[in-house]
Design a binder for these strands. Structure first.
Length: 338
DNA sequence: AGGATTTGACCGTA
DNA sequence: TACGGTCAAATCCT
């Protein structure tokens, strides 16, 4: 459990760092001739970041105690002490019958859970991706009784038990309900640490670093992009947090909607890369062709950054992006945490 | 060839 | 027993 809390601390620090970075950005915007909307976006992101940090503190403080589950917890995913051997693909080798599987199965049931609602706006084109920064891999699609659209299920690819379900709303087909379940124990993509991996991997990582740089340089473009976003974050009695985004036209789960684009190296797994789901590939419940009108570079920007506009709960990557982007960040700066 | 996705089958739960 | 979640072989994609 100690390692779990350690992980929480890292997330917490990342959130606080993010909040500070956003505050800096806001300060810059105050001096510049930026729009009110972009400032507002920053303010919202700052608030979301600190809100999440507080939630982590609350949840971390109750670790080891029974967690109320069932309702959307509105709680950030928190580490759990499992053996870190997710099941499928590169990490699902035969754990099905062992105790670890059973324990993990139980924990999954009692794991924190919350829901995002992602809205797609047919007339406006892509206005907001839903890249929560984690690397998801689809492992199931199920027709749900009484539901018009199938439910797609995704699992984190980084030795992580967290899962994500995407269900298109029957009432409003422009809305996708994204339910996050379980606890992230994975290192965040941008949290990749140098590893003596193969030259190929290192090369990929270098490319990723380059991407980060490009993303940073594209920050301004992002703000312009974000100005067109409709971001509504609601705190539903701390039980559920909902973010609404405008998306282009969307479809139900479809086949062959594309692949994940390599973006990071996973230090903890034998995987050659950490795959970050691009907004267009968020899941097969979104039609990839919805987004074809966008330039690849632009989609990259979106993928890397708009998670900051996501639910304060699920957005974890952005903060860590900041960490990696500035490895020399003065953590020991006096008063930094004060 | 390696990795990602699809999809029918299996399993657990209510 | 029905339903939803997950598995895993087959298939597709790069």
């Amino acid at each position: 459990m100690e390692s779990g809390w350690f992980c929480e601390q890292k997330t917490l620090i990342a959130e606080l760092i993010r909040g500070m970075e956003l505050a800096k950005q806001l300060r810059a915007h105050l001096n510049a001739t930026s729009s009110v909307e972009s400032r507002d976006v920053l303010v919202q992101r700052i608030l979301a970041s600190y809100e999440k940090a507080l939630l982590i503190l609350n949840w971390g403080g109750s670790m080891g105690q029974p967690q109320s589950v069932g309702v959307s917890a509105g709680v950030p995913e928190s580490p759990i002490s499992i053996n870190g051997s997710p099941r499928s693909d590169e990490f699902d080798g035969g754990v099905k019958d062992n105790q670890g599987y059973n324990e993990a199965s139980k924990k999954r049931k009692t794991a924190p859970r919350w829901t995002d609602h992602v809205r797609v706006s047919p007339e406006n084109g892509l206005e907001g991706p839903h890249d929560d920064g984690y690397s998801w891999r689809k492992y199931g699609q199920k027709d749900i009784l009484g539901a018009k659209y199938p439910r797609c299920t995704y699992r984190n690819t980084q030795n992580c038990w967290a899962t994500k379900q995407v269900q298109r709303s029957d009432e409003d087909p422009t809305i996708f309900e994204i339910t996050y379940r379980g606890t992230h124990i994975c290192a965040h993509g941008n949290q990749s640490i140098p590893s003596p991996s193969s030259p190929e991997k290192q090369e990929k990582k270098q490319k990723n670093t380059d991407n980060n740089y490009q993303q940073q340089q594209s920050q301004q473009a992002l703000y312009n992009f974000q100005n067109s976003l409709k971001v509504i974050t609601e705190d539903l009695d701390n039980k559920e947090m909902v973010s609404l985004f405008s998306f282009p036209s969307a479809y139900g789960c479809t086949k062959n909607v594309g692949s994940y684009s390599p973006s990071f190296i996973s230090p903890a797994t034998p995987e050659p890369a950490h795959y970050s789901v691009s907004p267009f590939q968020m899941n097969n419940c979104l039609g990839a062709h919805d987004l074809l009108h966008l330039e690849p570079d632009f989609t990259e920007i979106i993928s890397a950054n708009t998670s900051a506009t996501n639910s304060p709960i699920v957005d974890l990557d952005f903060a860590l992006d900041q960490v990696e982007l500035d490895p020399n960040f003065p953590f020991d700066t006096p008063g930094f945490f004060s």
